[in-house]
Design a protein around this nucleic acid. Sequence first.
DNA 1: GCTTAATCGAGACGGTACGTCGTGTCTTTTC
DNA 2: GAAAAGACACGACGTACCGTCTCGATTAAGC
Lengths: 192, 192, 192, 192
Amino acid sequence: MPRTRSDTSRRAILDAAFALVGEVGYAKLTMEGIAARAGVGKQTIYRWWPSKGAVLFDAFLALSENAEGSPALPDTGDLAADLKLVLRATVEELNDPRYDLPMRALTAAILNDPTLAAEYEQRLEAPMRAIKLARLANAAELPPGTDLELALELLWSPLQSRWLAGGELTPAFADAVVDTVLAGLRGSRDPA
Amino acid sequence: MPRTRSDTSRRAILDAAFALVGEVGYAKLTMEGIAARAGVGKQTIYRWWPSKGAVLFDAFLALSENAEGSPALPDTGDLAADLKLVLRATVEELNDPRYDLPMRALTAAILNDPTLAAEYEQRLEAPMRAIKLARLANAAELPPGTDLELALELLWSPLQSRWLAGGELTPAFADAVVDTVLAGLRGSRDPA
Amino acid sequence: MPRTRSDTSRRAILDAAFALVGEVGYAKLTMEGIAARAGVGKQTIYRWWPSKGAVLFDAFLALSENAEGSPALPDTGDLAADLKLVLRATVEELNDPRYDLPMRALTAAILNDPTLAAEYEQRLEAPMRAIKLARLANAAELPPGTDLELALELLWSPLQSRWLAGGELTPAFADAVVDTVLAGLRGSRDPA
Amino acid sequence: MPRTRSDTSRRAILDAAFALVGEVGYAKLTMEGIAARAGVGKQTIYRWWPSKGAVLFDAFLALSENAEGSPALPDTGDLAADLKLVLRATVEELNDPRYDLPMRALTAAILNDPTLAAEYEQRLEAPMRAIKLARLANAAELPPGTDLELALELLWSPLQSRWLAGGELTPAFADAVVDTVLAGLRGSRDPA
DNA sequence: GCTTAATCGAGACGGTACGTCGTGTCTTTTC
DNA sequence: GAAAAGACACGACGTACCGTCTCGATTAAGC
């Protein structure tokens, strides 16, 4: 009994979903479209995923698993420089049209599906955060007792916010964020 | 000849849209549903709005026009205190289930419709930002030459980010953000 | 409010149904196929008919309404001759490939749908029977008190039976049926 | 290795098919349903039967093989009495709800599948007809040279016709058919 | 106050996609 | 090597909405 699923179909579905969402956007992404593009029956999608959001999510997951070449952030000893490097890379990715539409789609999916949001948090966000936290924990520049979770939020959310609002994302913006936030983290000991 | 549109219908449509999106979410919000709830023909909606996102947007606009009681942020002279007050209010609003679903819906609509995003930026975001900028410009605590746009982004985006990710939003988090960001803005005199 | 249905669509649907059933048979007749051939949305069919059997039935009804040129059977005074004429016409129709497949389809539909069977009896069969009964009632050849309903059954059912079984249907067979049945009806007064 | 087919499965499939068709009718009879009810893989059905009509047909065949207790019609010397006995039995069977639905199903299957019709004619109808013909051939009541095939058709088709149309089938009707047809066959000496 | 034309409710229409069910083929595993 | 189990590509199901299109029936301007 083939209690075993076809990996060929699985890959074809995820690839088709990612490609299609980049072409037509999330609103016009349809299960039928994915199935047709993947050369697969609709049932094969519904058998393994509950919604198009879930398919999309898995497509991203597969993507990041392939690109698992960054298990750690750079650590040259200079926190500001290292963070700028990473945030500039993020800026570049968010500006890349190849990823813009798919990521907007995934964000929209997560936004209205708590189940998906939880899975996203657990399978994609948490590992990322762990890597980032490791770098911050290793930073001599930060005073002991610094709230590292807060630090992460302060560093990355401005990028996400601008991207979401459709504003311009530049490397200079990333640098300014890093400088200001690090200054704040260093100096929040003696405010006023 | 009623060369003018029926305001009764307009209100009924916006109210129905807002109510429905709070009950079923954006994905299950339909033009037919809005029309039925509003006791209105579908054509009456299509005559005045191009998409359900646009209806939703106008529903929000109508809401904020009614609550147009806050043309300015508080200014007690203590920037940190004033900002904490405002950010805590924002936290409360984002935690209010009455607004959570509708706002997620609007965000999703904006996320995948550049036209809507532009209108949102112009009609809702820009006025808000102007009010906030006015308060910051009036703050003696900030060194001259401070990038106020950056400051806004640093202050508000962490809230939006946590809300979007479904994380816990607390007043304490708002306070921490204000303290750290203000410290950073003040202390960027000695960066790196 | 167009509480009024489109007669163009109605005709297109019935025509498409009749044409298709003649091409592919009842088993492969699909609602989607009818809709596509008629250039009509599926919903328009489902709005007015509950099943493909019902559509098919109405297609036949429309057919017989158009060909409403035979309100009475011939009455030359010679019952046997008149009946042979009519039964030979029936034989010809049942042998006509243009009607064979559609009629098999309708029969199959009726066979498994009591609702349809009742409607068939009432709207198609009963009027036909009335016409036939009128001719028999006017026949001097039949003894008074003859069971005319039985007579009809004896005359027509052998044709239907052979057609259904796929047997050969010839004018000679029709003649033999008429002769034998009429003889029986005349002579059943003094059996043995 | 079971080089021969499992008779257990064969019986289970035929039983399931017969039972199911009696419960849900021919239209809703499915291969999957039969397989599930029989506790059998779908492939096992497809390996041995080409269609659900064929399965149904075999189910009937198996039935009549079991009840192979009537190799001949009664012959008391009184043809009318004997025929009435047999036709009344037929009436009873056609009125039995246990056989009504399955027989409608088989009829529908045959109606639209010439292959099946041929097999039905050869394996079920022909043997039956031979038995009936034997009785008629032995009847002194019929004039020599009587068309016995025609006689059969005249006798049995009215029952089938009424059953098919959903009309009322009574023993009295059977009697009337026998009396009239026999009178006709005897009296066709003075036709016209 | 009467006309007249745009707006309104209602909802039918041609379509697209939905999520499910069944088909007939195939593959895997068990007996 | 036949059989159970069931995944697969496919096609149709019947439903929900889409956005467009009539249809009367208000209804408020301009004559």
